[in-house]
Design a protein around this nucleic acid. Structure first.
Lengths: 147, 147
DNA sequence: TTGCGTGCAAAGGTTTTGCATGGCA
DNA sequence: TGCCATGCAAAACCTTTGCACGCAA
């Protein structure tokens, strides 16, 4: 496994600079493309995919497949204030589409139970809980993102 | 919300008959298409998608997005011997791709905790736990489905 | 100069839609 | 006879790949 030499390019730097301003926020490749187009400094979608792939490999970005028949979802992991400590999980509201960060210490006990009793080692960073967020539970009002 | 009248067609019946033989097994729309083509009684892929969508709405089939950049995964829910009682969950091995049914009573306490303390109502039928299965944990041997 | 990075265009794959035809009630 | 269901073809999407050019080291 030979590590390739990596060049420092303008696109790479601008992408990382931007990502550093949105730790913990989830986004798609298209979101990034839109952001830079709006700024007048457009980056090719191919480059965005390639850079994100690299960052995922390096562990600086997480990749999720959350939305149905939709695009992959990425998230920058702040190395300073790392949200991805052992008790940070993701919840996705099936009604309004919100993605919520869940900080729950009780989960660890369950993960251990499942590991010991069921022999399955859960990867919290990849697992997403689907359900209803607090807002959407209230009165079961229809709060679809597209009205 | 007016319920549309549903006709009983040959394709619909054959699809449901087949699904009833594979409760709890996960499959893609293409799998179904292949199955019927092999049987000589081909069903259009469009019809398969439309029937599966309907079955998902009716709750007889679950739909998951499990594999990365790949196709959606369906599963027939046996109404007789319903695996989807309140403590049946799905685990997907990230290494070998196996989909495991996890029957765990301890999960309920956690779901209640998350509902009460974090105000998120988890839907167990939609949630998939990612991680490593027992086999793939052993010695960390490479057991990719494509050798 | 070397070879990685970029971005356009095109390909690849899955799912959805339009539309004419077929079949159930 | 109505109206839903079917399936072909085409469109819509997201993502990856090929390739020529640009640029960092």
């Amino acid at each position: 496994m030979v590590q390739k030499i990596s060049y420092k390019t303008k696109q790479k730097e601008e992408l990382l600079s931007y990502l550093e301003t949105i730790p913990g926020v989830h986004f798609t490749a298209a979101d990034i493309s839109d952001h830079f187009r709006a700024q007048g400094k457009s980056i090719g979608i191919t480059t965005i995919y390639r850079q994100l792939d690299r960052l995922v490999e390096e562990g600086q970005v997480s990749k999720y497949y959350i939305d149905e028949s939709s695009s992959a979802c990425f998230e920058y992991i702040d190395p300073e204030n790392n949200c991805h400590h052992p008790h940070c999980y993701h919840c996705k509201c099936e009604r309004c589409g919100k993605l919520i960060h869940l900080d729950c210490h009780e989960m660890e006990g369950l993960l251990q139970h499942i590991s010991k009793e069921h022999r399955f080692l859960i990867d919290p960073m990849r697992t997403v809980f689907y359900g209803l967020c607090a807002d959407c539970q209230k009165g079961d009002i229809h709060t679809e993102s597209n009205p």
